[in-house]
Amino acid sequence: MQGLIKSKTQTNYFTMLENDNNMPPTLDDSLNSPDFRTLGEVTVPRPIMKTKNVNVFYGEKQAIYNASLDIGKNEVLAMIGPSGCGKSTFLRCLNRMNDTIDICRIEGEITLEGEDIYGRNMDVVLLRARVGMVFQKPNPFPKSIYDNVAYGINLHGLTNSKSETDDVVEDALKRAGLWAEVSDRLNQPGTGLSGGQQQRLCIARAIAISPEVILMDEPCSALDPIATAKIEELIDELSQMYSICIVTHSMQQAARVSQRTAYFHLGKLIEVGSTDLIFTNPGHRLTEGYITGRFG
């Protein structure tokens, strides 16, 4: 679900919502009842981000209904669901990427370490430095590998000298597992790397400014299985330092990398729970239908 930047692309998004071929055979009426509640435990003991009763509208169309969900410190939270279920929209609310869309309206409360991110005191630049993002399609800047990683550091003035920047760049590339492959060609364009390398470069770019949370929007959907495996391994390692929120289409991936899983359906957060539980003993009929492959 990329390309939500300009209004022209929004029509596509809407048609996607409406012509969803992956609709379940029957809709649970309880979804539309006013006292619909998300199944499972939405709060965690040590949250870094909390969302409460979030509603998102694109113009008249509502994309998210009353979603409340916590992201715990150092946990990997996976968000799954059929196309157009609102999981990407929800993710993009977490670092206010939806601000760029004129007709997008967000209600509810989203906090980062207790601060309201839509509050008056929250600067969006600072927020995005604290909540980094990795996109579906690898999108390195058309600059050198070094400049790609150093851009955020220089943008925020995080280092005082060139050598310090070099160290941070090297560290970020090492943590992204890319250093061994690119250390001898840092001045070559980042766009010349392979798809998987590009995505790891984007992860390096995101972690170079040491965010607290990393949002990943289907980071592996454009990659082959080997590159995917590398990224998944990387996510595992990164979760020791960062909190990660990942949107994925692959249930296996969610099962492999995450500790908690949230299932979205038609803009509603149906069920949240520990990954083990969701995949072995889903509580909701729709969740079960999705993970057993009846639709989705």
């Binding site: 990329q2 930047i5 670092n95 990427m97 760029t100 630049v125 600072l126 927020l127 995005r128 430095a129 980094g132 993002m133 996109f135 999108n139 390195p140 800047f141 058309p142 851009y151 955020g152 943008l155 925020h156 984007c202 770019r205 995101a206 400014i209």
Partner: peptide, 9 residues
């Protein structure tokens, strides 16, 4: 490209 730049702050 815009998303990448905005996403990094």
């Amino acid at each position: 490209i815009r998303e990448a730049a905005l996403g990094i702050g």
